[in-house]
Design a binder for these strands. Structure first.
Length: 263
DNA sequence: AATAAAATCAACCGCACCCTA
DNA sequence: GTAGGGTGCGGTTGATTTTAT
């Protein structure tokens, strides 16, 4: 058997659909359904290939399609699902009644990706520790900040063995994150010194330096990996070289707060 | 008002999977 | 077991619209 070309080139129309074509397609599907997309255009008298008909129906003509802008709630759902599922648009669409995979894909590429990046950028400004050589770093209390994203990092900064990056500031210099006086519980606020991006000492590393396989070696890190991938953290953090370091980053990302709070 | 640049979105393309002969 | 047909999916394109200069 010789496979027939998907679209017989001769005489088949491409490009935007006309209202007349839409009408024909809708009425045909209403009468006969769409059990065979390949045969459908011929039966309906459309000069389109089956693929094109299917796409038009699924993405535009289906009666249950929800038109209009995505709500805040829908956007949050997409972000969350994308964090879990990756670019599996149809799976994401299945969780959003009335929305198509194509539409979600478009919204992701045009809006949400940028939105997340902006959030990340602003979060990075606060999350990442600075080289504390500047004397006049002001101190901000995140509890009063609009961008408060770190609920608490008990025992993280300055605790023994937490030295995951290189070059290292000396322990006495590690004043970048300090607990407020009297902080005793995990929910206590912390203070983070305001930083300038030029002060960052985290080297930019390629994602492959910190592979999924490495993360998967440790189940706890595995938990964090999807969120990290989704948030683009890999490119900003150094690799983990020992268990202490592993604990450090695990605490930082998993205990420090749900990814949702970063978004 | 004219033009350029950026954003948006519908549609196409190629691939992979599943089913069937 | 294998090859082809049908379908669905994700990536990409390009026309159109909107915004900025």
């Amino acid at each position: 058997m010789v496979r027939a070309p998907c679209c017989e080139k001769m005489g088949l129309k491409k490009g935007p659909w006309t209202p007349e074509e839409d009408k024909i397609l809708i009425s045909h599907i209403q009468k006969y359904g769409h059990s065979n997309w390949r045969a459908l255009p011929k039966q309906a008298g459309l000069l389109r290939c089956g693929k094109s008909c299917r796409l038009r129906w699924i993405n535009y003509l289906r009666p249950d399609i929800k038109r209009g802008n995505f709500t805040e709630e829908e956007e949050k759902t997409i972000i969350k699902l994308h964090e879990m599922l990756g670019n599996r648009w149809s799976a994401i669409a299945a969780k959003l009644p009335g929305r198509t995979d194509n539409e979600i894909k478009n919204v992701w590429h045009t809006h949400l990706k940028k939105k997340i990046k902006q959030k990340q950028d602003s979060n990075n400004q606060q999350l990442y520790v600075t080289v504390p050589k500047c004397d006049d770093l002001s101190v901000i209390d995140l509890s009063e900040s609009d961008n408060s994203i770190i609920p608490a990092l008990p025992g993280l900064i300055g605790s023994p063995g937490h030295s995951p990056m290189s070059p290292q500031p000396s322990s006495s210099d590690l004043s970048t994150v300090t607990e407020t006086s009297g902080a005793t519980a995990e929910t206590d606020n912390i203070k983070v010194e305001k930083m300038d991006s030029s002060d960052m000492f985290f080297p930019l590393l390629d994602q492959d330096l910190w592979s999924e396989a490495e993360l998967a070696e440790n189940s706890s890190m595995e938990l964090a990996s999807d969120s990290m991938v989704a948030a683009g953290f890999y490119s900003n953090f150094p690799r983990i070289d020992d268990d202490n370091d592993m604990d450090f980053w695990y605490n930082l990302f998993v205990k420090a707060g749900d990814i949702e709070e970063l978004l």
